[in-house]
Simulated scan of single mutants.
Amino acid sequence: MKVSDFDYELPEELIAQTPIEPRDSSRLMVVHRASGSIEHRIFREILEYLTCNDVLVLNNSKVIPARLFGQLENRQVEILLVQKVNERVWKCLVRPGKKIKPKVVVQLNEGILARCLDKCEEGMRLIEFSVNDEELLRMGEAPIPPYVRTKIPLERYQTVYAKVAGSVAAPTAGFHFTETLLERIRSLGVKIVEITLHVGIGTFRPVKTENVEEHRMHAERYSIPLDVVETIEKAKSEGGRIIAVGTTVARTLETFARTNLREGETDLFIYPPFEFKIVDALITNFHLPRSTLLMLVAAFAGYELTMKAYKEAVEKRYRFYSFGDAMFIL
C-alpha cells in the first residue's frame, strides 16, 4: 500500500488544543466491524458495550517531564529526553538541530549544563547533563505534541492509572477513563489488567517512505506481567473479548502473540493486511494522516471502514489527536 492511501483532509480547528473535562465526557464513535455501522455516543456510555467476559487491557506507562529549554548564542534551544543511556547521559531530540554539535554546551534553566557528546541515529544527540536524573526531571515540562499550542500541565498529560515512568508521549486512548468509570466497569465483572509499553521517539516520526512496507518502527520497551497473560489466556479460552486500550496495548499484545516474550523491545509495525491473534476490540483516538497509528487502526477495522469513519468524524466535528475524542472498534 502507499502511504498516501492514509491521507485525509482535516480542518485545523478540529485539532483539540485542550483536554476535555471531565475526562469521560468526550465523544465516542462506536464502529462495528461486522456490520460496518457507526454509532455516536459519549465515552462514559462505553459501559453499554461491555460484558462480564471482557478483559480491558491498559498501558500504565507514565510520561516523564522530558521537555527541557535552554539558551545557546541568544537563541532558545529545546531538548527532548528520549532514551536514558546511563546516569546523566541521554539520547535526545534537539531543536535547532544544526546548532547542537559535538562539544557544544547548552545552558539550561537553573544553571544546568547540557553537553553534546555525539550525534546518534535518527537525528538524535547523545547529551550529558551536569546534574543527576532526579534533578534534571524536576525542571522538565510535559512533552506535549507540537500540534498542541497551549501549555498543558504534566498531570493532565497522563492517564489516571499511570504508574511506571518512562514514556516521552502519553498513551492517549486512556485519557478518557476516570477512576469512577473504571470502578463502574469493574462492577460489571469486566477484568481490568495492566501492561507497560514506554512510548518513544516513534510517535514523533512521520512516515517518510512512499510504500508502507518500507517504513521501520522505532523499538520501544514493553513488559507484560505473568498474571496478565494468564487472565488473557483464560478469557480467550472461555470466549471472552480482549479489549486493547490504545495502539500501544495492541502492539504489545500482538508482539507477545508472535514471540511469547513477556518483556523486551518491540518494533512491530501493524498495517493492512494483518492477523490479530489476541486483540478482539480496540479503543483509540483519532490519529494523524499518513501515520503508523492510523495504519494500525485500518489493519484492525479494515481500510474502507476506517476511512469512512474518519470522513464521518470530520463531518460531525469530532475532536482529533491527543486531547480529542475516542473510537471504540468492535
Rank of each mutant, 00 (worst) to 15 (best):
V160H: 01
L188A: 11
L282M: 13
R216Q: 15
S26T: 00
R115H: 04
V94L: 04
G189M: 10
E214H: 13
P65E: 06
T255P: 04
E179I: 10
E263A: 10
P289K: 01
D280N: 12
I112W: 10
L288T: 05
K103F: 03
R149L: 13
P289W: 01
E73D: 15
Q17W: 05
R251M: 08
A219P: 15
I46Y: 02
K316Q: 14
L126C: 13
T209I: 00
F300Q: 12
Y303V: 05
L288I: 00
I46D: 08
Y49P: 00
T51Y: 01
M124I: 08
N132F: 06
V105T: 13
L293H: 09
A250W: 02
E13S: 14
I112D: 04
A169W: 03
N86W: 03
I42F: 09
T203L: 08
V314H: 09
H287Y: 02
A114L: 01
E275A: 13
F328I: 02
A309C: 02
D133E: 05
G111Y: 03
V94Q: 05
R290T: 07
G240Q: 07
K2H: 13
G111E: 00
H218Q: 01
F204P: 00
K62L: 06
P289T: 00
R27P: 07
E179K: 14
T18S: 14
V106Y: 06
L81P: 13
L268E: 08
T172N: 09
M29Y: 04
Y310Q: 06
V94K: 05
E194M: 03
I20L: 14
I270H: 10
P225N: 09
T159A: 12
L188D: 11
G111C: 10
P206S: 02
C116M: 02
I20T: 15
V31A: 12
P22G: 00
E45S: 08
R33P: 10
A169P: 12
L330M: 12
E155H: 07
E233D: 10
R156M: 13
A244Q: 04
Y8M: 02
V314W: 03
I224C: 12
A219N: 06
R156Q: 15
P19G: 07
T150S: 14
D280V: 06
R23Q: 06
G189Q: 09
A313N: 06
T292Y: 10
F177G: 12
D227K: 04
I283H: 00
R205F: 11
E183F: 02
L47D: 06
G97R: 12
A313V: 01
K316C: 11
E135S: 15
V148S: 07
P11A: 07
E233G: 07
T178D: 12
S61F: 02
E263K: 05
V199N: 05
R88H: 07
E220N: 05
G324K: 01
R258W: 01
A281D: 08
L28M: 10
S25V: 04
Q83D: 14
E13D: 15
V228E: 08
M29H: 00
V212L: 02
A309K: 03
T18P: 09
G123Q: 08
F286L: 15
K163F: 06
V212N: 00
E155G: 03
L28D: 01
E213Y: 07
Y157S: 00
E121S: 14
A162H: 05
P273G: 12
I201R: 03
P146W: 01
Y271D: 06
T209A: 04
C52H: 12
T150N: 15
R216A: 14
I329N: 11
L330N: 11
K119Q: 13
I243V: 03
I185H: 11
F69D: 02
